[in-house]
């Protein structure tokens, strides 16, 4: 298997940096343009920094907080030069991200059940496909549950990913009750002694109360089939999303108590800065990032690497 070799490559850090190259180029390009050659911190510099961060979708409030800190620091005369500004900003962002930096540990339960949710078109099914490949390469027995019974051909899409990863997909007919499909999948996981179940769900906007109730029901049914399940409630977020990402995370979290985030489509020009806002507000860890369409283009999120890669030249 070609992708297996790629995934196990010794230097995932290098791959991460490669994947983030474009993001970094834009982000740093902007910051360096602002900081380069400067000595003093004045209001003009702060305004330009504000622009750079807002363009990265960090959100006006997060940016204001960060810049207020910078302003105070400058007053205390600790921050004087461009290098200090950079370090200060890096530290502020790391502080926010580190409060929730933790990898997904699937050994805490056997079988381990992951419920994947998100708005329409965020990349749930693709992420599940990539996750399945990753777990298979870690020698786990994986089963997928085709819980998106609403969107046309969603089941077929998951089946194709199942084939690629070489794992079973538990499914029902289009239009079937997703809770029933997922309950069946839990029974299958137990009967077949699988290690991990990843349940797909239909994309839904976080403002639709009835569809959120449907997810709550799925969660209850999981717990009924396997007490303690789901062990991970994973929200998939599109990096292109602006400040609405905060509302998405907040409302999904309110209904379902999220335990992890995945940030997809980071290989475009979008910077995904809203994630800093989300982690700051909700303290939910970012598990993975999607940086391409290839089967192995899913990376474990690491706050230090992420911020380093963003700030590195």
């Amino acid at each position: 298997m070609i992708f297996k070799k790629k995934w196990n490559e010794k230097n995932p850090f290098r791959r991460l940096k490669e994947g983030l190259a474009k993001t970094r180029a834009n982000f740093i390009g902007g910051i360096d343009k602002v900081i380069g050659g400067r000595r003093k911190i004045d209001e003009e510099l702060l305004e330009e920094l504000e622009e750079t961060f807002i363009l990265a979708d960090l959100g006006i409030h997060t940016v204001s907080d960060i810049l207020d800190g910078l302003r105070e620091g400058a007053k205390r005369e600790k921050i004087r030069e461009e290098a200090d500004v950079k370090n200060y900003l890096k530290k502020s962002m790391l502080e926010i991200l580190n409060q929730a930096d933790s990898e997904l540990d699937t050994s805490t339960s056997s079988p381990f059940v992951i419920l994947v949710i998100g708005v329409n078109g965020s990349g749930k099914t693709t992420t599940i496909g990539k996750l399945a490949v990753k777990f298979v390469n870690d020698n786990k027995k994986v089963i997928l549950a085709a819980g998106d019974t609403f969107r046309a051909a969603a089941i077929e899409q998951l089946e194709i990913w199942g084939e690629r990863a070489g794992v079973d997909v538990i499914k029902s007919k289009s239009g079937a009750d997703p809770s029933a499909v997922i309950f069946d999948a839990i029974q299958a996981v137990k009967a077949r002694n699988a290690d991990i179940l990843i349940a797909d769900t239909a994309g839904r906007l976080h403002t639709k109360t009835n569809l959120m109730e449907e997810l709550k029901k799925i969660k209850r049914v999981m717990d009924k089939g396997l007490p303690g399940a789901p062990h991970e409630v994973m929200l998939v977020l599109d990096a292109t999303t602006g400040q609405n990402g905060t509302s998405q995370a907040a409302l999904f979290n309110e209904s379902l108590s999220l335990t992890g985030l995945v940030l997809t489509k980071l290989d475009g020009t979008a910077k995904g800065g809203v994630i800093i806002n989300i982690v700051k507000e909700l303290g939910i860890p970012v598990r993975y990032i999607g940086i391409g369409e290839g089967i192995d283009d899913l990376r474990e999120f690491n706050a230090a690497q992420f911020v380093d890669a963003l700030f590195e030249e």
Binding site: L55, D238, T241, A270, V274
Partner: peptide, 12 residues
């Protein structure tokens, strides 16, 4: 275009 798009909407 997705109505939820952020600052990147302009570039896209």
């Amino acid at each position: 275009a997705d109505a939820m798009t952020g600052q990147d909407a302009v570039k896209i």
